[in-house]
Nucleic acid binder design. Structure first.
Length: 149
DNA sequence: GCCAACGTTGGC
DNA sequence: GCCAACGTTGGC
Protein backbone atom coordinates (compact mmCIF):
# COMPACT_ATOMS: atom_id res chain seq x y z
CA UNK A 1 0.00 0.00 0.00
CA UNK A 2 1.58 3.25 -1.08
CA UNK A 3 1.46 6.65 0.44
CA UNK A 4 3.31 9.86 -0.17
CA UNK A 5 5.06 10.51 3.13
CA UNK A 6 4.22 14.22 2.91
CA UNK A 7 0.58 13.18 3.12
CA UNK A 8 0.82 10.16 5.42
CA UNK A 9 4.03 8.46 6.51
CA UNK A 10 5.04 5.36 8.42
CA UNK A 11 6.14 7.62 11.28
CA UNK A 12 2.69 9.13 11.49
CA UNK A 13 1.18 5.67 11.60
CA UNK A 14 3.71 4.66 14.25
CA UNK A 15 2.63 7.54 16.46
CA UNK A 16 -1.09 6.97 15.90
CA UNK A 17 -0.80 3.17 16.18
CA UNK A 18 -4.13 2.87 14.35
CA UNK A 19 -4.49 4.78 11.10
CA UNK A 20 -6.99 4.92 8.31
CA UNK A 21 -6.26 4.40 4.62
CA UNK A 22 -8.52 6.89 2.90
CA UNK A 23 -8.55 8.70 -0.40
CA UNK A 24 -8.14 5.67 -2.63
CA UNK A 25 -9.90 6.56 -5.90
CA UNK A 26 -9.07 3.67 -8.16
CA UNK A 27 -11.44 0.77 -8.61
CA UNK A 28 -8.69 -1.79 -8.79
CA UNK A 29 -7.08 -0.51 -5.62
CA UNK A 30 -10.45 -0.37 -3.90
CA UNK A 31 -11.19 -3.94 -4.88
CA UNK A 32 -7.91 -5.06 -3.40
CA UNK A 33 -8.85 -3.31 -0.16
CA UNK A 34 -12.23 -5.03 -0.18
CA UNK A 35 -10.45 -8.37 -0.38
CA UNK A 36 -8.50 -7.67 2.82
CA UNK A 37 -9.31 -9.46 6.04
CA UNK A 38 -8.71 -8.22 9.54
CA UNK A 39 -5.29 -9.45 10.61
CA UNK A 40 -3.81 -9.46 7.11
CA UNK A 41 -0.37 -7.91 6.89
CA UNK A 42 0.56 -5.15 4.47
CA UNK A 43 3.73 -3.42 3.36
CA UNK A 44 3.91 0.37 3.68
CA UNK A 45 5.48 1.86 0.55
CA UNK A 46 6.61 5.48 0.35
CA UNK A 47 6.11 6.96 -3.11
CA UNK A 48 7.04 10.24 -4.77
CA UNK A 49 10.21 10.50 -2.72
CA UNK A 50 13.79 9.72 -3.64
CA UNK A 51 14.32 6.87 -3.39
CA UNK A 52 10.88 5.26 -3.22
CA UNK A 53 10.53 1.94 -1.42
CA UNK A 54 9.11 -0.20 1.34
CA UNK A 55 9.80 0.74 4.93
CA UNK A 56 7.10 -0.57 7.15
CA UNK A 57 4.67 -3.30 8.02
CA UNK A 58 1.09 -2.86 9.15
CA UNK A 59 -1.88 -5.06 9.89
CA UNK A 60 -5.44 -4.63 8.69
CA UNK A 61 -7.43 -3.52 11.72
CA UNK A 62 -10.83 -2.88 10.19
CA UNK A 63 -12.05 -4.29 6.92
CA UNK A 64 -13.29 -2.07 4.09
CA UNK A 65 -16.08 0.38 4.87
CA UNK A 66 -17.23 3.57 3.11
CA UNK A 67 -14.64 6.32 3.00
CA UNK A 68 -16.37 9.42 4.43
CA UNK A 69 -14.08 11.81 2.54
CA UNK A 70 -15.96 11.00 -0.67
CA UNK A 71 -19.04 12.83 0.70
CA UNK A 72 -17.18 15.90 1.98
CA UNK A 73 -17.11 18.76 -0.56
CA UNK A 74 -14.19 20.35 1.26
CA UNK A 75 -12.07 17.21 0.98
CA UNK A 76 -9.60 16.76 -1.84
CA UNK A 77 -11.04 13.26 -2.11
CA UNK A 78 -14.61 14.48 -2.62
CA UNK A 79 -16.51 12.65 -5.35
CA UNK A 80 -19.75 14.29 -6.44
CA UNK A 81 -20.81 11.13 -8.23
CA UNK A 82 -20.90 9.21 -4.97
CA UNK A 83 -23.56 9.39 -2.28
CA UNK A 84 -24.11 7.87 1.17
CA UNK A 85 -26.88 5.71 -0.24
CA UNK A 86 -24.57 4.39 -2.95
CA UNK A 87 -21.00 4.83 -1.74
CA UNK A 88 -18.36 4.26 -4.34
CA UNK A 89 -15.15 4.31 -2.32
CA UNK A 90 -13.95 2.41 0.72
CA UNK A 91 -11.16 2.71 3.22
CA UNK A 92 -9.60 0.29 5.68
CA UNK A 93 -8.11 0.96 9.09
CA UNK A 94 -4.57 -0.23 9.67
CA UNK A 95 -2.53 -0.97 12.76
CA UNK A 96 1.16 -0.19 12.98
CA UNK A 97 3.33 -3.29 13.25
CA UNK A 98 6.88 -2.12 12.64
CA UNK A 99 9.09 0.31 10.84
CA UNK A 100 11.77 -1.61 8.97
CA UNK A 101 15.36 -0.95 10.05
CA UNK A 102 16.08 0.39 6.58
CA UNK A 103 14.28 1.30 3.39
CA UNK A 104 14.06 -1.48 0.82
CA UNK A 105 14.22 0.60 -2.33
CA UNK A 106 12.34 0.12 -5.57
CA UNK A 107 15.73 -0.16 -7.28
CA UNK A 108 16.61 -3.05 -5.03
CA UNK A 109 13.35 -4.83 -5.84
CA UNK A 110 13.97 -4.27 -9.55
CA UNK A 111 17.45 -5.68 -9.23
CA UNK A 112 16.45 -8.92 -7.54
CA UNK A 113 15.11 -11.62 -9.87
CA UNK A 114 13.00 -13.06 -7.05
CA UNK A 115 10.81 -9.99 -7.30
CA UNK A 116 10.48 -9.89 -11.08
CA UNK A 117 6.83 -10.94 -10.99
CA UNK A 118 5.76 -8.41 -8.37
CA UNK A 119 3.12 -5.96 -9.58
CA UNK A 120 5.21 -3.08 -8.36
CA UNK A 121 7.87 -4.12 -10.86
CA UNK A 122 5.53 -5.05 -13.68
CA UNK A 123 3.06 -2.18 -13.44
CA UNK A 124 4.55 0.23 -10.97
CA UNK A 125 2.97 1.76 -7.90
CA UNK A 126 0.38 3.49 -10.04
CA UNK A 127 -1.86 0.84 -8.58
CA UNK A 128 -1.74 2.20 -5.05
CA UNK A 129 -3.01 -0.91 -3.30
CA UNK A 130 -1.79 -4.17 -4.74
CA UNK A 131 -1.50 -7.79 -3.61
CA UNK A 132 1.92 -9.15 -2.58
CA UNK A 133 2.82 -12.84 -2.54
CA UNK A 134 3.62 -14.14 0.94
CA UNK A 135 7.06 -15.27 -0.22
CA UNK A 136 7.88 -11.80 -1.56
CA UNK A 137 6.55 -10.18 1.59
CA UNK A 138 8.79 -12.32 3.77
CA UNK A 139 11.82 -11.83 1.56
CA UNK A 140 11.46 -8.05 1.59
CA UNK A 141 11.14 -7.88 5.37
CA UNK A 142 14.05 -10.29 5.81
CA UNK A 143 16.19 -8.23 3.45
CA UNK A 144 15.53 -5.09 5.46
CA UNK A 145 16.67 -6.87 8.60
CA UNK A 146 19.94 -8.01 7.12
CA UNK A 147 22.72 -5.54 6.74
CA UNK A 148 22.63 -3.42 3.63
CA UNK A 149 23.84 -5.20 0.52
C1' DG B 1 9.41 19.29 -15.69
C1' DC B 2 8.96 15.42 -18.67
C1' DC B 3 7.26 11.16 -20.17
C1' DA B 4 5.11 6.62 -20.26
C1' DA B 5 1.47 3.93 -18.59
C1' DC B 6 -2.99 3.48 -18.05
C1' DG B 7 -7.70 4.47 -16.31
C1' DT B 8 -11.73 7.29 -17.37
C1' DT B 9 -14.79 9.94 -20.19
C1' DG B 10 -17.73 11.22 -23.79
C1' DG B 11 -19.10 11.41 -28.65
C1' DC B 12 -20.71 8.63 -31.92
C1' DG C 1 -20.04 -0.71 -27.17
C1' DC C 2 -15.98 1.33 -29.25
C1' DC C 3 -12.20 4.03 -29.03
C1' DA C 4 -9.79 8.54 -29.30
C1' DA C 5 -8.89 12.17 -26.30
C1' DC C 6 -7.83 13.46 -22.01
C1' DG C 7 -6.24 13.51 -17.22
C1' DT C 8 -3.59 11.58 -13.53
C1' DT C 9 0.16 9.33 -11.51
C1' DG C 10 4.83 7.98 -10.23
C1' DG C 11 9.52 7.65 -11.34
C1' DC C 12 13.26 9.80 -13.02
Amino acid sequence: MKSEPDVYSIDTLASERIGTWEGVRSYQARNHMRAMKRGDLALFYHSSVVPPGVLGVMRIHREAYPDPTQFDPSSPYYDDKSSPSAPRWDRVDVEFVEKLPRLVTLDELKGDPRFADMLVIRRGMRLSVQPVAASDFKAIVASAKKKKR
